[in-house]
Design a protein around this nucleic acid. Structure first.
Length: 596
RNA sequence: GGUUCCGUAGCUCAGCUGGAUAGAGCAACAGCCUUCUAAGCUGUGGGUCCCAGGUUCGAAUCCUGGCGGAAUCACCA
């Protein structure tokens, strides 16, 4: 971006010299020169014509001459219609490459450790079910976005909010009490979250039976739900939980612990971690206090039945319930409490919530309610809304048993990676002790890349039948390219070709130049991705880079090249590509092997 | 019904803060390993950018209206 900024400033000062003082930077529209045209960076002059009172070609010519005269980086230019194509001295790109190769990291480090962090909430599981495919997208997005923001220079705190209380937890507890017969995940040899999930399913099944029976006695669905003995028991348990009943709390703690042990395993596989975990059991009361205070100040209103509401009429929205008539809090109340707690804990610069787009309305309201309650930091709350993961048959539905389990997907990816690696004989290259690590890397690389390469805002399709490809636009393709670079470096080192600074070579092929320019783009892509909260930009970029590199690799040999400076240049180009790939994959939460 | 989001090749997706000739991968077909890793490379075919208007030098991109799909509008979370 430094080069574009420089050109922009030069064009602006040219405009100043002709049209007088003013801020012209906004009008300077630069883009990469389109393939098929000569040049590197193109200035679109149409927006400047009114100002210059010239014809397109004339204006472009004038600017081109000015840039040539005033910037040594500009080697030459050509004008086609309203497009000024600027050619940069190839030596400039080489110099840039040499420069970044000396940096110990291609990613920025957060400047001042004590400046306000960006808070990123993601994951946010319920403790009655294991994680599924939708959670995977959430977790991967959260991790990746956190890393990207950090790489753009801002400190980040990753936070999780566990929904550990409520009627659904009571359902599992009740089911376990009734039918669990004292078993534990250890005794049953089942992962804790799956173990607990089974009791939730069991409860729903038994409840269904009761409801069906009641309906056959001509009750409506709603009445049946009220009347069903199991539901009554569950509600009674929730009441006991809220009143602090020791026995209930003990069971609750035990079962949640089982779930957390399960989650921890999954998080570990996914490479997910947090700076701080919040629990709704610890935040919902804060929410209630805040709401009650708002009520006192007259910002909120109370109905006759005791329920508390926020009137959002002036935002042309409905009224929103904040406390039930029995005084218990709802989802919104809990989120208010959590937000307040977090703000006090971190005084963050921003509070980002990675949550599915099914909750767009919720977050819109959350921000408004916070504002109404008088929190001036309400504007810092931002919902990073992402699309649903759909299956070929549509949405995942737990009732139809089409939910794709997170642990299943993870292990399937690894099994596939293992099988393919063996079939291709790729593991022979890898030291025996490292094989399982590499296989995991590839399986997870495939999964992470597959999920993250699509624009977060869009719904995406996941087809478990066809599984995930390992060829073409995939994680393994990018990892492979990295391994290729590593292999090449080893060979070069044996041949005595050093990785010292490259001299600007004159005889550069168009493919080499293209690669160089692509490497230069990386930092711009990172800041764009940070701004847009979009790992997809990184994914698309690194794919493009890997593809370009493989083309370069195909017809630019190093060991068989006789010119020493060309050998060295190509090696450095490879080293730099490898580093950018590794950094980009890191931003996607994926690792990259040295052999595969 | 109101609101929001989406609609690009057979399939999955890029491109969208307006710019030149709309791109990849998969699938299909045809080639390239005695030469730095073939999970690679090269080539062929494949398009009403949902439709219709508008804005302007210029629209896949912005605006309006349709059509189609999804989400949401709970004293669920």
């Amino acid at each position: 971006m430094i080069l574009e900024k420089k050109i922009e400033n030069q064009v602006a000062s040219y405009l100043k010299s002709i049209c007088g003082e003013g801020d012209y930077n906004e009008l300077v529209h630069l883009q990469k020169t389109r393939a098929g045209f000569k040049g590197d960076i193109t200035l679109v002059v149409f927006p400047l014509l009114k100002l210059l009172k010239q014809k397109p070609a004339e204006a472009a010519q004038g600017i081109g001459e000015y840039l040539s005269d005033n910037m040594q980086e500009v080697m030459s230019f050509n004008v086609i219609k309203g497009f000024l194509n600027i050619e940069i001295d190839p030596g400039w790109w080489t110099g840039y490459m040499n420069m970044i190769l000396q940096e110990d990291s291609l990613l920025k480090k957060p400047d001042n450790k004590d400046s306000s962090p960006v808070l990123v909430e993601f994951s946010s599981p319920n403790t009655n079910k294991p994680l599924h495919l939708g959670h995977i997208r959430n977790n991967l997005l959260g991790m990746s976005i956190s890393r990207i923001i950090e790489a753009s220079g801002k400190p980040v705190k990753k936070v999780n909010l566990v929904n550990d209380r409520g009627i659904h937890i009571c359902k599992t507890m009740l089911a376990w009490q009734k039918w669990g017969d004292g078993t534990t995940p250890e005794k049953a040899d089942i992962k804790g979250d799956h173990f607990v999930g089974e009791y939730y399913v069991m409860f729903e099944k038994e409840l269904r039976k009761e409801i069906d029976k009641l309906r056959s006695e001509s009750y409506t669905e709603e009445e049946a739900l009220q009347k069903a003995p199991l539901m009554k028991e569950a509600r009674e348990m929730l009441r006991k939980w809220e009143s602090g009943d020791r026995e209930t709390l003990d069971l609750w703690k035990t079962m949640n612990r089982w779930v957390y042990e399960g989650f921890d395993e999954t998080y570990k596989e996914l490479g997910v971690s947090f700076h701080k975990v919040y629990y709704e059991s610890g935040t919902y009361k804060v929410g209630r206090e805040v709401v009650e205070e708002g009520l006192k100040r007259g910002v909120l209103e109370k109905k006759e039945d005791g329920s508390v509401w926020a009137d959002l009429g002036k935002y042309s929205l409905d009224k929103k319930l904040l406390l039930r008539s029995d005084g218990t809090s709802v989802y919104m109340t809990q989120d208010i409490g959590t937000a307040v707690l977090r703000y006090n804990d971190f005084s963050p610069a921003e509070m980002l919530y990675v949550v599915g787009n099914e909750q767009d309305y919720h977050f819109k309201v959350l921000q408004i309610v916070l504002r109404e309650l008088g929190y001036e930091w309400a504007e810092k709350v931002k919902h990073i809304s992402y699309g649903m993961v759909e299956l070929p048959g549509g949405r995942m539905k737990s009732r139809e048993g089409t939910v794709v389990d997170a642990d299943d997907i993870i292990s399937e990816m690894e099994i596939t990676a293992q099988r393919l690696s063996e079939e291709l004989g790729k593991l022979d290259e890898v030291p025996p002790g490292k094989r399982s690590e590499v296989v995991k890397m590839i399986g997870m690389g495939a999964l992470k890349y597959f999920i993250l390469k699509v624009d977060p805002r869009k719904n995406m399709l996941f087809n478990p039948e066809e599984s995930i490809d390992f060829n073409g636009n995939t994680g393994p393709f990018i990892q492979y390219t990295h391994a290729r670079v590593c292999s090449l470096r080893r060979k070069c080192s044996e041949a005595g070709i050093t990785e010292q600074e490259s001299s600007p070579i004159v005889d550069m092929s168009s493919k080499e130049l293209m690669l160089l320019k692509l490497l230069y783009d990386f930092q711009g892509v990172v800041s764009q991705a940070a701004e847009d909260h979009s790992p997809a930009l990184i994914a698309n970029y690194v794919y493009e880079l890997a593809k370009e590199y493989n083309q370069f690799y195909h017809d630019h040999p190093i060991l068989r090249e006789s010119r020493r400076d060309v050998q060295q240049f190509r090696l450095l180009l490879s080293v730099c590509t490898g580093r950018v790939i590794k950094s980009a994959m890191y931003l996607l939460g994926a690792e990259v092997p040295e052999r595969m």
